[in-house]
Amino acid sequence: MSILVDKSTRVLVQGLGNTGEFHTDKAIAYGTQMVAGVHPTKAGTTFHFEGETDHSGVPGRDDTYSTDLPVFATVKEAVAETGANASVIYVPPPFAADAIMEAAAAGLDLVVAITEGIPVADMITVKRYLEGKPGRLIGPNCPGVITPGECKIGIMPGYIHQRGKVGVISRSGTLTYEAVHQLTGLGLGQTTAVGIGGDPVNGTSFVDVLRLFEHDEETEGVIMIGEIGGTAEEEAAEVVAKEMSKPVAGFIAGTTAPAGKRMGHAGAIVSGGKGTAEAKIEAMNDAGIVVADTPSGMGEAMRRALG
């Protein structure tokens, strides 16, 4: 088992510009079932992808791949024609919120928004729109979701992953890679790694993913990687203390970040004394989470938590 994505996940891509095309190619090389593209002016055409298979991905494939991806005018049409059940969004920021709503309206189970720089007001509207709808949004401003050996949706490098027993949740991209790399190095591996994104308003929280991992049989422990800004980590710590039977490790970036400054991510800001690393680490310690002192000790913290 795993969470959110597996080998049956059929993915369509919204936004086939340079970035979208590049990562679609990497996903196909990994073995992800990319089934359709959506583009308002390129509908009716196909995108051709070919190259060397990424053997760190889905096992048992030929050494090369050659795929023609059909492009549709709307998500609804792409779903009807291909049976896609997930979407990945590379649409530029001014249009990304609309793309997310279109994907949700088409009934997709999972929408992964990679786009960085979506206005907060747009995301507030999106969250309101998603209320009561079954689909789940991951991101925006995130690296995506990967279940090693089965399905990679997003921009993370596939080869650092290894199928294993740890669930990974993170607000940061490269810091997730760092954690994944350490887990792989220690032979712990990952069930699924989920980047929830660095924006102040996002689709899925630590709490949501913690609960999914708690109910996933294959996941034996979870590592959550947070950073300054907001109170999502504190809320997650409460849920860990109350609901989680599995060991949880963690790390918080930004101990040295000055107050009032936005540290790269739109959501990484200490304001009015709220959202400090200290408060988050304290809440996590109180919840029994094994918090790594340094970013180089994340994997080790997980190993200790697993006992």
Binding site: E178, I228, A253, T294, P295
Partner: peptide, 11 residues
């Protein structure tokens, strides 16, 4: 990456 950049400062 922003998260790794903060973590590098922290270490």
């Amino acid at each position: 990456g922003a998260g790794l950049a903060m973590a590098t400062m922290d270490i």
